[in-house]
Amino acid sequence: EVTIKANLIFANGSTQTAEFKGTFEKATSEAYAYADTLKKDNGEYTVDVADKGYTLNIKFAG
């Protein structure tokens, strides 16, 4: 089991951190699915992958 950390960075400057656990593939998939649910209210997003994929910096356009 691994932990994927998602740093969520919103257009208004606020930030939030979420963690997803499971296999690497499952946790990564859940992180992207979570970002997709936030897209409606926060706009499109870009992802900067860090720490060999264990950290995702997800920035929303607003």
Rank of each mutant, 00 (worst) to 15 (best):
G62K: 08
N42T: 04
T37F: 08
F60E: 00
K59G: 04
E1W: 06
T55G: 03
N12L: 06
N57T: 13
D51G: 06
T28M: 14
K5V: 13
N12I: 09
T3W: 08
K59Y: 09
T15A: 15
V47Y: 04
K40N: 08
A11I: 11
K21L: 14
D41Q: 14
D48R: 11
K5N: 11
E44Y: 08
D51L: 04
A6I: 15
I58M: 10
E1N: 06
V2C: 04
K5M: 15
Q16W: 13
K21E: 08
L8N: 02
T55P: 01
G13I: 04
N42D: 06
N7W: 12
N42R: 13
N12C: 08
I9H: 11
N57W: 13
L56R: 01
V49C: 04
D48A: 10
L56V: 05
S14W: 14
D36T: 07
A33P: 00
Y45P: 02
N57S: 08
V47Q: 02
Q16K: 09
N57C: 05
A11P: 09
T17F: 12
K26Q: 14
E1H: 07
T46P: 00
N42L: 09
T17M: 12
F60G: 00
E1D: 09
S29R: 13
A61L: 12
T15K: 12
A33Y: 07
I9M: 11
I58D: 00
F20K: 01
K59P: 01
N7S: 06
D51A: 06
K52G: 12
D41F: 10
A11L: 10
A11C: 05
K52V: 07
A27Q: 01
T17P: 06
S29W: 10
Y32F: 14
T17E: 09
N12S: 12
T46D: 07
S14G: 10
Y34P: 00
A6S: 06
S14F: 13
T3Q: 09
E19C: 06
T23F: 08
A11V: 14
F20N: 00
F24C: 04
A35P: 01
G43A: 03
V47R: 02
K26W: 14
L8G: 01
K5Y: 14
D51S: 06
A11K: 12
A31F: 03
A27R: 00
S14L: 10
G53D: 03
Y34T: 04
